[in-house]
Simulated scan of single mutants.
Amino acid sequence: MKTAAAGKGASASAKKAAPAKKATAKKSAAKKAPVAKKAPAAKKATAAKKPAAKKPAPAKSSAPLKKAPAPRKQVVAPKKATASVPAAPAKTVAAHPRGESRTALVRRARRIDRELAEVYPYAHPELDFENPFQLVVATVLSAQTTDLRVNQTTPALFAKYPTPEDLAAADPEEVEEILRPTGFFRAKTKSVIGLSKALAEQFGGEVPGRLEDLVKLPGVGRKTAFVVLGNAFGRPGITVDTHFQRLVRRWKWTDETDPDKIEAAVGALFPKSDWTDLSHHVIWHGRRICHARKPACGACPIAPLCPAYGEGETDPEKAKKLLKYEKAGQPGQRLKPPQAYLDAGGRPAPPLGAG
């Protein structure tokens, strides 16, 4: 009985021992298993840490620092450009003939004006007028046509409409018929009727004597305003028409092309009191001798002072044929004989500085 009981106890203990062994085996397996599993996990962690170490990328971060000088070069470039800006006035001075100084330019320009004053002692506006109103209307009509054509047209216009009030109330079609010979007659009709209305309504039918008031009139710009101020009111002004622009550039008085800038540049060379007569001298010379296409250089009284001498005909006999004289019966508008401009040998003196 004891043996049986012992056998039973042994078997029971064996059964108990078996699960215990299994538990220990499982524990040992569990201990071994995690170790085996942790190893790849650690490898993964180290593998994950390696790319993380690349994030600082000191080499890449230093690359933008190497490109930093590029913007510095761009900053230096404008400084070089601004340093070269003061060289502009030097070009203006070099544009004068033979490197002419400012003082020499002033002297030459004034001498040219004195010479022209002797050739055209009676230079005056070539538009016929009896009062400021007629002068402002005639000057507006002179655009894109000759003064002679305007003088042939205005007598009929002023006979029918003698005052601003009369012209302001005129029938546009009737005015157009009168102004047709001057060209652009529709636009000119609109301008002269418009300025007449402005004179009647704003200035009591009188032409104002101020530049700021004149330029407000329809069809009246600075050129027309200075013609009126200088010749109707005795107030100095420079008339920059096509002849004036051509000649002052040909004489190297200025390189400007804008009329307002030409007016300022030339005005700085002369006393203000000379401006009106200067305008007449230059315009008369441009119409009679210093033509646009073929100037009569061989018969020019200011040839020794002109840097453009030689652009036109230099032979005296051929140059004489290019001169334009006014019709007889207009005293004061005739030129001196061409021989008066020539030296003893029958030729004009060469320009200053010529060989």
Rank of each mutant, 00 (worst) to 15 (best):
E174I: 04
P164I: 13
L157H: 12
Q144N: 15
K188M: 02
F158D: 02
L148S: 10
P132T: 07
L179W: 10
Q152C: 03
A156T: 13
T139C: 11
I178A: 02
P181M: 05
V150H: 02
R180P: 06
L179N: 11
L157P: 12
L167K: 11
V150I: 12
S191T: 07
I178M: 01
T182R: 04
T146F: 06
V140Q: 06
D171L: 03
T189H: 03
L148V: 14
F158T: 01
A143F: 08
R180S: 06
A187W: 03
P172H: 04
G183E: 09
E177Y: 07
G183Y: 11
A156D: 09
D166C: 03
P164H: 13
L167T: 08
R186Y: 13
V137P: 05
Q152L: 14
T154W: 04
E165P: 04
A169S: 09
A156R: 14
F133A: 12
L157M: 13
F184V: 08
P162R: 04
D147Y: 01
R149K: 15
T182E: 04
R186A: 15
Q152H: 08
P181W: 02
A138V: 01
A187Q: 13
R149P: 02
P155H: 07
T154M: 04
D147G: 09
A159W: 01
P164G: 12
V175D: 00
P164R: 13
V136P: 03
E176A: 11
L179D: 09
A156W: 00
E165W: 06
F133L: 12
P172Y: 04
S191K: 10
K190M: 11
V175T: 00
S191Q: 12
L135P: 09
A169W: 00
L135T: 08
F133P: 13
F184Y: 15
L141H: 08
G183M: 10
F185R: 05
P162H: 04
V140T: 15
T146A: 15
D171V: 06
V150E: 00
P162G: 04
L148R: 14
T154K: 05
V192R: 00
V140S: 09
R149H: 07
E176H: 03
L179S: 13
F158N: 05
T154L: 08
A170R: 10
R180I: 02
A170N: 12
T145G: 07
L135M: 14
V137H: 05
F184G: 07
T145P: 08
D147L: 03
T146W: 07
